[in-house]
Simulated assay, not measured.
Amino acid sequence: MPADEPAENISGGESGGGRASAFTTGEAATRAEEVVDRLGERYWQKAYGGQDAFECLVRTILSQNTSDVASQPAHDSLIERYGPGGPAGRGDLVDALAIADQQRLAETISSAGLYNQKSERIIAIAEEIRAEFGDEDAFDTFVRDGEPGEVREKLLSYDGVGPKTADCVLLFAGGQEGVFPVDTHVHRIARRIGLAPADADHETVREHLEREVPAKKCGFGHTATIQFGREYCSARKPACLDDPEACPMADLCEQVGVDPETGDVVDPSEA
């Protein structure tokens, strides 16, 4: 695995979970698979699963509308206070957060932004999970062993949990193959490259990717696409604007919404 894989990353490095894996090389069946294969060669191939489901859910909520740089300290502070051994810990994170003081929790996670909204949602979800499942171990078993469609439906029923958050829990905690969470990077890049229609919403992009990328490659396809978006295919200044050869995906990309001649970059849906 490359040495420059981020060490603190909701999607990638060691704290993001996962274990080194290897994919079968050979001719890709679809262009989407070819893109993912190339990203896997550049960044990493990993198999996911094994995170505690409730902690993964909380961590993904903290990451909403912010960066890992901001959400990681919030997660660490939350675990330090409410996890086992913390001053507000009760041995069970669901139980500790279900009875947490909202203002104190908001202060604890303030680095993540939108901390009042996120603290209210985390407490409400903890209350629901405690009422239905009892504790975090039972919820973890449900996410890991439950039927994926049923688990996804349950996660989506919680206020503040959208498709991307639900899919991240299915991937990073449940270890479900064939799950390709779509965040802003994946949504932009899939449409810019031409792997999904230019006007596709997040759910439509997910459907295209999960249909055209082999199930075992979806997890690392998600994490590697995010890294590619950070390094090469940013929203406002993709690498191809400076040099068409600077992007490792140049020969596979349709550059939807990107005009290297004028330097104009728009959302693919506006191209």
Results as ranks from 00 to 15, higher is better:
residue 84 P to A: 02
residue 32 A to V: 10
residue 239 A to Y: 09
residue 106 A to N: 03
residue 57 L to F: 06
residue 269 S to A: 14
residue 264 D to V: 15
residue 144 R to D: 07
residue 59 R to F: 11
residue 249 M to N: 13
residue 61 I to K: 15
residue 59 R to H: 05
residue 219 G to S: 11
residue 75 H to I: 08
residue 164 K to T: 01
residue 242 D to G: 15
residue 209 L to Y: 04
residue 10 I to W: 10
residue 162 G to K: 03
residue 13 G to R: 03
residue 265 V to S: 11
residue 215 A to Y: 10
residue 52 D to W: 13
residue 23 F to S: 10
residue 153 E to A: 14
residue 49 G to D: 12
residue 15 S to V: 02
residue 265 V to I: 03
residue 253 C to D: 05
residue 31 R to T: 13
residue 101 D to T: 01
residue 189 I to R: 01
residue 2 P to W: 01
residue 127 E to M: 10
residue 29 A to P: 03
residue 122 I to R: 04
residue 19 R to E: 12
residue 124 A to P: 05
residue 28 A to T: 06
residue 133 F to D: 09
residue 118 K to E: 05
residue 206 R to V: 06
residue 103 Q to M: 06
residue 256 V to S: 13
residue 85 G to L: 00
residue 49 G to N: 14
residue 15 S to P: 01
residue 152 R to P: 06
residue 107 E to M: 03
residue 249 M to F: 10
residue 113 G to E: 05
residue 53 A to T: 10
residue 48 Y to E: 13
residue 96 A to M: 01
residue 162 G to A: 08
residue 4 D to K: 04
residue 118 K to R: 14
residue 58 V to E: 09
residue 111 S to C: 07
residue 266 V to K: 06
residue 19 R to F: 09
residue 233 C to S: 12
residue 264 D to Y: 05
residue 232 Y to G: 11
residue 96 A to N: 01
residue 95 D to Y: 02
residue 95 D to A: 04
residue 23 F to Y: 10
residue 48 Y to I: 11
residue 262 T to N: 08
residue 63 S to A: 14
residue 7 A to V: 03
residue 45 Q to M: 08
residue 42 R to Y: 04
residue 243 D to S: 13
residue 89 G to R: 00
residue 51 Q to H: 13
residue 61 I to R: 13
residue 139 F to W: 12
residue 191 R to T: 02
residue 182 V to R: 00
residue 82 Y to I: 03
residue 200 A to N: 02
residue 43 Y to K: 10
residue 137 D to R: 15
residue 228 F to S: 05
residue 85 G to E: 00
residue 126 A to K: 09
residue 192 R to G: 00
residue 50 G to P: 10
residue 168 C to R: 02
residue 194 G to E: 02
residue 137 D to I: 13
residue 271 A to F: 07
residue 230 R to G: 12
residue 111 S to K: 07
residue 71 S to C: 08
residue 119 S to A: 15
residue 10 I to P: 11
residue 256 V to H: 08
residue 143 V to H: 09
residue 208 H to P: 06
residue 103 Q to T: 13
residue 179 V to G: 00
residue 64 Q to M: 08
residue 112 A to W: 04
residue 2 P to A: 04
residue 157 S to A: 11
residue 155 L to M: 02
residue 57 L to K: 08
residue 24 T to Y: 05
